[in-house]
Nucleic acid binder design. Structure first.
Lengths: 216, 216
DNA sequence: GACTGTGAAGCCATTCACAGCT
DNA sequence: AGCTGTGAATGGCTTCACAGTC
């Protein structure tokens, strides 16, 4: 009664496929092959087909995939056919940037309210959204059907915020704080770790992958 | 004359280990075991040991690792013993937030200049950094020994910016634009994809991993 | 006794190669 | 002929389990 064991890498790629297909759709292209999708997002045709095959047979042999229909299927798979209500915790620089990021709304994710523990900020508006005090957060989540929280507070506070969140019906956390959060299994956490990304970049540059002159 | 084939996942974890060890160092703890490190960052002891073993024998059997020394080793491995000069392209919300993000400097990554194609912004200062026009970017990179560029421009411009960058001595790009960049192999790209992260979260919530009631 | 370092085993993901439609 | 869907083969990463060292 349930699909099974999809590689996380596949799920990430589906998201990229969908974004690419949305672009292709705008150009009114009707049909697309796995090779063209791969080309458009830096992968291989076989991988595109494998990824899609986990979920069903969306294509037509000898022809390819219907762009619009495939995009819709992928969005359904990813759970994007519904709207997601989110809150943002942290009205600092990063929070401010995130509150204004259009990419979220375009994909069905909407920030409904912002929370901060700085009483100078509470009551102000940030990009059209009210800033509330943290102690109202739990009630707000309950009352407004919020299922995802974005943590954009300094590292030292992130676990405190998470501790409050896990007592609410929140289902997922997108964490921008550079710390590993401890939460119960039923809350899903994704970390966006800016420094880690730079450090991997640093390592790869220093050990120049792909770059080395051919040598026997 | 060269270490070999380190899993990328290992490199990412090294970065997390180092951040954690930096915290532990502050508490003046001298020695730490693989189990304690694993505990502190959500992994397993065996994995911590395996990751470290790719690069050498840093521990003492029966005892553990010297915190300070291990952290130094990891930083060396990651290429953090030198300072990295970066530029930021895009002085919008996200760029503004990134220019102020302290986590970068703490780890040896410094933004030296900001570039934008909006002439109303050029000449202004953003968090103590001057904003230059894009057409000065290539010269600036050459003149200031910049090796990493952070792209924080809208998706439609990101490839244009990348096209300019690849003609310069830039070695790595941290890309925040929600597009797949096409660059030659010798330039290393890392994508920080905000929507992809939310969409994986969405998928995981909908298919609640870990959460399902036990069933035979 | 405690904890590291590591080959071997097991698991997961990607790639290959081809059968099956259109 | 063209392109999908997929079992089988490969490759890579993680976990196990234990020998080695303090």
């Amino acid at each position: 009664m349930k699909e099974f064991k999809i590689p996380e890498a596949t799920v990430s790629r589906l998201s990229v496929y969908s974004r690419y297909l949305t672009e292709v759709e705008k150009q009114h292209i009707v049909s697309i092959s796995s090779g063209e999708i791969a080309e458009g997002m830096g992968g291989t045709p076989a991988q595109v087909r494998k990824d899609l095959a986990y979920f069903g047979e969306f294509g037509t042999r000898g022809v390819g995939y219907n762009v619009k229909q495939l995009n819709q299927e992928i969005k359904n798979i990813l759970g994007l056919s519904k709207k997601w209500n989110m809150i943002l915790i942290g009205a600092g620089n990063l929070g401010s940037a995130l509150s204004q990021y259009h990419g979220f709304r375009e994909r069905g994710f909407e920030i409904k309210g912002i929370f901060d523990n700085d009483l100078n900020k509470v009551g102000l508006m940030l990009n059209g959204l009210p800033i509330y005090p943290i102690n109202e957060m739990a009630d707000y989540i309950e009352a407004n059907g919020i299922s995802i929280a974005i943590i954009a507070v300094p590292g030292d506070y992130a676990q405190d915020v998470a501790d409050i969140l896990v007592e609410t019906p929140i289902k997922g956390i997108l964490n921008f704080a550079p710390v590993v959060l401890t939460v119960p299994d039923e809350v899903e956490v994704r970390n966006v770790d800016l420094s880690v990304n730079l450090e991997v970049l640093s390592y790869n540059i220093e050990n120049n992958l792909d770059t080395m002159p051919e040598e026997e």
